[in-house]
Computed example of a mutant assay.
Amino acid sequence: MSEKTSTGIEENVAGLLCYLLGWISGLIFLLIEKENETVRFHAMQSIVTFGGLNVIYILLMISVIGIPLMPLVGLVGLIAWIMLMIKAFQGEKFKFPISGDLAEKWVKDVKI
């Protein structure tokens, strides 16, 4: 059985929920989870990964050259979303390339 969090939700379920609505649910869990470092990591990774993908998507949208790349960014986002939710639910602290390292570093610095 998974460890409980300060929210009363099991750690693996809270980790999955951090990714459910992309960076929005990540932000919510970063604000409400005060103790569990694993859930805070998943929350920060969700913010960095999906916030970054949203920024890239917006930049491509305003660029005529980038418009053909938008479906590719959407597909990468979908695959990342599914994979990160599965890994979190399995209790694995999977670090996504680049954003996982940033999340691990930044989650220690952010105390809300």
Rank of each mutant, 00 (worst) to 15 (best):
N54H: 12
I65R: 06
K111W: 12
G22T: 05
I24C: 05
N54A: 15
E33W: 10
L16R: 00
K111Y: 12
I9Y: 10
Q45M: 10
S99K: 04
S2D: 08
K34E: 12
E33A: 09
I65N: 05
G100K: 09
G52S: 10
W81I: 07
I9V: 15
A80V: 10
L78W: 13
I32D: 00
K4R: 15
S6M: 06
M70A: 12
E37C: 05
E10P: 08
I112L: 13
A88E: 00
G77T: 04
K95P: 02
M1K: 14
T7I: 09
S6T: 15
E104C: 07
A43I: 04
N12G: 07
L75N: 03
V13S: 05
L53Q: 07
V110C: 06
Q45S: 10
I65Y: 10
L59C: 13
M83P: 01
L60I: 06
F94P: 01
T5W: 01
I82R: 01
V73C: 06
A103V: 11
W106V: 12
F29T: 01
E10I: 15
W106D: 09
M70T: 13
L20C: 07
F50E: 00
F96L: 15
L69R: 02
L75S: 06
I79V: 14
M1H: 11
E92W: 10
W81C: 05
A43M: 03
V39P: 01
F89Y: 12
S63I: 06
G22N: 04
V76L: 14
Q90P: 03
E35M: 05
V76M: 13
R40T: 06
Y57Q: 12
F89I: 10
V39E: 01
S99E: 08
K108V: 11
F89L: 15
I112N: 07
Y57K: 12
I79N: 08
K4H: 12
I58H: 00
L75Q: 03
L72S: 07
W81D: 02
K108M: 11
I47T: 02
N36Q: 05
T49Q: 08
I98W: 05
F94S: 05
A80E: 02
F89A: 11
K111G: 09
K105P: 06
I62W: 03
E3R: 14
R40L: 04
G52Y: 01
G91E: 02
L17W: 06
G8H: 08
K108I: 09
M70S: 10
L31K: 14
I67E: 04
T7H: 11
L53P: 03
W106C: 09
L20Y: 02
M44D: 00
T49P: 03
P71A: 12
F89M: 13
L30W: 05
I82H: 01
I67N: 07
I32E: 03
C18R: 00
M44E: 02
I56R: 01
R40H: 08
I79M: 12
W23C: 03
K87T: 03
F29A: 03
T49F: 04
Q45A: 07
E11T: 08
L78H: 05
W23Y: 11
V73I: 15
T7Q: 13
L84N: 08
R40F: 07
M83Y: 14
I82S: 03
L20R: 01
F41E: 00
K95I: 11
I58K: 02
K111E: 10
S46I: 13
M83L: 15
G91R: 08
S25I: 12
